[in-house]
């Protein structure tokens, strides 16, 4: 399987990358790890006229702790996140997710930012970043802007990122005391696309009520989704079997999974419901231990 012909340009700094991208407009694509884009190109489903490689742009690979946030750069790979001590201690939900992404070969090359830009509806990172309430720094020739993850995914494989823009950094708040997170993925085989994935990041108050909660979903529709209605339902409530039952019914009303070979829309909804209950419970039990 070979792609259609394309130009390959390698940028050495961010300005150069932005300039090259602007020349090609909608026909240009940024490539970092290439773990989603290259297979799509080989299937001729993606046909960019030009790839702008940013792997040689300095200063884009980092995991930094600043002001209660972790910042992850555009070239930071799945593996780097998966083995990072900072991630393990401060954002355990990301550590958990990094272990179930694809296979070691993909993890060595693929990047968090690349996965977010791909906006695969059955991917693993988007629900986690949504649950954490991440913010995304996008740089263009006209300057930079910061987008909320929850507004970033607008349509199937489509984000708010404009042609000529590069997502350079993901900014993730570090949860405080009594916080717990869980990413549960139901998959057909190890490292596969999620049939359903639920990321839950919650904080309980001293009385054990749910003070704050973020829920991100994979396999729930055309885009990665944040389960806002379910979050609202659970906020201020004690996590019990009854409320989880209610939450799963609420979830069913707010998702519309795509039927495909990994399951019909109904099946995926059923799996999301049961996975939501398990993930919230797991996150709550982790919060009690923290």
């Amino acid at each position: 399987m070979y792609s259609v012909p394309f130009d390959y340009l390698c940028a050495h700094n961010i300005q150069e990358a932005l300039k090259l991208l602007s020349e090609y407009g909608e026909e240009g694509r940024v490539i970092a790890g290439g773990q989603s884009l290259i297979p799509l190109m080989k299937l001729r489903l993606a046909r960019p006229k030009c790839l702008v490689d940013i792997k040689r742009v300095p200063g884009l690979s980092f995991i930094n702790k600043e002001n209660g946030h972790l910042k992850v750069g555009a070239l930071t790979t799945h593996r780097e996140l998966g083995v990072s001590d900072l991630i393990r201690s401060d954002l355990p939900i990301m550590h958990e997710a990094a272990q179930v992404i694809a296979d070691p070969q993909v993890r060595n090359l693929g990047t968090l930012v690349g996965a977010l830009c791909q906006a695969e509806p059955s991917g693993d990172w988007a629900p986690v970043v949504l649950a954490l309430g991440g913010r995304l720094k996008c740089v263009g020739q006209k300057g930079e802007r910061v987008l909320e993850a929850k507004e970033f995914f607008v349509d199937a494989y489509t984000t708010l990122l404009q042609p000529g823009e590069i997502l350079t950094e993901v900014n993730l708040p570090i949860p405080g005391a009594r916080a717990g997170g869980a990413y549960l993925k139901v998959q057909r085989r190890a490292g596969d696309f999620a049939v359903a994935g639920v990321a839950v990041q919650l904080t309980l108050d001293e009385a054990g009520l749910c003070k704050d909660i973020g829920i991100g979903l994979s396999g729930a529709g055309l885009t990665p989704l944040r389960a806002v209605a379910v979050e609202e339902l659970l906020r201020g409530r004690r996590i019990s079997a009854e409320i989880l039952e209610e939450a799963s019914r609420c979830l069913a009303g707010s998702v519309d999974p795509i039927s495909d070979l990994r399951g019909s829309s109904k099946y995926k909804t059923d799996v999301l419901k049961v996975t939501l209950k398990r993930a919230v419970q797991l996150a709550a039990s982790r919060s009690k231990r923290s």
């Binding site: 297979p39 296979d103 057909r188 085989r189 190890a190 490292g191 596969d192 696309f193 495909d260 070979l261």
Partner: peptide, 10 residues
């Protein structure tokens, strides 16, 4: 993507 081959991890 759709013809699922298991790997050693399964």
């Amino acid at each position: 993507k759709d013809y699922l081959l298991p790997t050693a991890a399964d």
